[in-house]
Design a protein around this nucleic acid. Structure first.
Length: 551
RNA sequence: GCCUCCAUAGCUCAGGGGAUAGAGCGUUGGUUUCCGGUACCAAAGGUCGGAGGUUCGAUUCCUCCUGGGGGCACCA
């Protein structure tokens, strides 16, 4: 029996009690059953009676008793107790609890997937690094978290587009092109340009493709150089993201907003909505109507659009493309943008609470990381991946909430002991594969399954952890908090190691070398082993971390 | 000045209004001659920064204070 089924049973009990006239109240949309902290409190517990006592106008314990009496009749429920102020503690039959192992193995990769976010069409924008240089440490955290959030949302039934906004417009691209041009001519990059060594590499790439640009007039060469260097740099960014296991469905060009007339179009749309002021020669969006601390300029007095104008046009584009929810993942250095982005949504006629969501992530650092001379004294993501590996990096970034600053310890990430969480979890999986190989060699197969045999304390513990997985995934998706999955995997790994230490899966071998016969207990435990491995794999997959057969 | 995030065990950190606040490390003491000891079990260790408030109940929600991180543009 899964917690979801139990939750449904509690709901039915509630409905029956209402129909029997024992109480009057509205049925809550969601009834949660949770795993109690103490095992003395049963397998699962719910505080529903405490929550509803006021509305029902009856003491919580009395309400709890009314529900408990019905729950005791449910198939698979062993005991139901009322505790403390009105908690309902439920213990399942060993067989009902153990059946979960089979359920998981049969569900395979889809175990943990739900439909809690079905119908949500989400645009998830993250990274969006400027295409004028390589990805660096500042992009790393959101690359890992954003990709994991996308996976969580999809696993929960949402339709998600991972999107990367390319800032390929504006003066910075000319500065970039000039820097490459300087390198093409063997000159130093002028003040304010891009000084990194990688610009030399880009210059070489450009020259290899179009040697003639060296001899062209610079004004003539600039657009060609700009385009080629831009394509080369964007290609490198995509390669790095690929190595990091991060996938984008759409790379959206800022330039296309300008050339396609969408920036001007956005102005007209917003003007029609009545939120535009013309003052001091400039065109302003009255964002203060919606909580921003000052109005924002869309078009400067010289007639040029601001970056903010493109932001507005981009938001409208997302809206027109049918995304009900637009999620932005921004670094803490961009938190000043929150109010104005929300104001754009409100000016466009959207609900700033529901249609736009802006997540702010704190910065990260890595102890002892070397600055890249190539990229101009920043720490490159590509270097971090080579140094620490995608798995260690992604897992570490995924295990902390985005709003806590982190300082990654490279020594820890490379250690192969308990204190390295990524190792601990991956080792649990590798150990399960090894155990399965040994079991197979000993003749243990999955030809029979008897859930009632899974009675050991550590088996009950392991099963209850396994049962939590779907709700961990769905709540992580709803809260946009992948770290819940990582923390869960650590507790699951711990329960697995505990079980492994206490319960043998392969038959024992006597002193004279003869093996005990294979029993149904051996076979059933193999199912449990496989179920755990499946959940570990599914969880790691959501974080973009691999699960290997051996370590 | 304004905005924002944070403050929980010696350290690094979890903790979506509920029961005795948890994990790893570190410390102390243990563990099955057999599936990987790269593991497991146990003990010690807390005024949840401070003060109010909401609530049957607050580490959790609200306000203020203290201490720390980050941020304020007709830049991109």
């Amino acid at each position: 029996m899964t917690p979801e089924e139990l939750s449904a049973a509690v709901k039915s009990a509630l409905i029956e009690a209402i129909e029997a006239g024992e109480l009057t109240l509205e049925i809550p949309g969601e009834i949660r059953v949770e795993r109690p902290k103490s095992r003395d409190h049963g397998d699962w517990a719910t505080n529903i009676a405490l929550q509803l006592a006021k509305e029902a106008g009856m003491p919580p314990r009395e309400l709890a008793e009314s529900l408990a009496a019905r729950l005791r009749q449910v198939d698979g429920v062993s005991t139901v107790d009322i505790a403390g102020p009105g908690f309902i503690n439920i213990t399942l039959d060993a067989a009902a609890a153990g059946l979960l192992a089979k359920t998981i193995v049969e569900a395979g990769e889809s175990f943990g997937h739900t439909e809690v976010l079905a119908g949500h069409v989400i645009n998830l924008e993250f990274v969006s690094a400027n295409p004028t240089g390589p990805l660096h440490i500042g992009h790393t955290r959101w690359a890992a978290l954003g990709d994991a959030i996308g996976r969580l949302l999809r696993a929960s039934g949402a339709e998600v587009t991972n999107e990367y906004y390319i800032n390929d417009a504006g003066n910075q691209m000319n500065v970039f092109a000039n820097s490459v041009l300087s390198r093409i001519h063997g000159e130093d990059v002028s003040e304010g340009g891009y000084p990194g060594e990688y610009v030399k590499e880009l210059a070489e790439e450009v020259l290899a493709a179009r040697p003639e640009v060296r001899d062209m007039d610079r004004d003539e060469a600039r657009p060609i150089v700009r385009e080629l260097a831009y394509q080369a740099q964007l290609g490198q960014i995509k390669d790095t993201l690929d190595a990091f296991g991060v996938h984008f469905d759409v790379y959206f060009s800022e330039e296309s907003l300008h050339s396609g007339g969408h920036v001007r179009g956005a102005l007209e749309t917003l003007r029609a909505q009545g939120h535009i002021d013309d003052r001091e020669g400039a065109v302003w969006l009255r964002t203060t109507d919606f909580g921003d601390d000052k109005d924002r300029v869309l078009f400067k007095a010289d007639g040029e659009p601001t970056y903010f104008a493109a932001d507005a046009a981009y938001y409208l584009s997302k809206r027109e493309r049918g995304f009900g929810e637009k999620i932005y993942l921004l670094g803490a250095d961009h938190h000043g943008y929150v109010a104005r982005l929300k104001a754009i949504a409100a000016c466009a006629g959207d609900d700033a609470e529901k249609n736009i969501e802006i997540l702010i992530g704190q910065l990260m650092s890595v102890k002892g990381a070397k600055l890249s001379k190539r990229a101009g004294n920043i720490i490159e993501l590509a270097d971090l991946i080579k140094w620490l590996g995608t798995d260690a990096l992604r897992y570490t970034l995924a295990r902390y909430p985005a709003d806590s600053p982190i300082d990654v310890d490279p020594d820890l990430l490379q250690s192969k002991t308990n204190d390295n969480p990524v190792f601990y979890v991956q080792y649990a999986h590798a150990r399960s594969r090894n155990a399965a190989r040994n079991a197979a060699a000993a003749g243990v197969d999955q030809s029979s399954f008897d859930a009632s045999l899974l009675t050991h304390e550590t088996e009950e513990e392991l099963l209850s952890h396994l049962g939590r997985f779907p709700s961990v995934v769905s709540s992580a998706a709803e809260l946009r908090e992948p770290h819940r999955v990582a923390r869960y995997l650590e507790s699951l790994a711990s329960a697995y190691h505990g079980w492994y230490a206490a319960c043998r899966m392969a038959p024992s071998v006597a002193e004279d070398g003869t093996a005990e016969p294979v029993t149904d207990l051996n076979r059933t435990r193999l199912w449990l082993n496989e179920a755990t491995a499946q959940v570990l794999r599914n969880g790691l997959q959501l974080l973009g971390v691999s699960a290997s057969e051996r370590m």
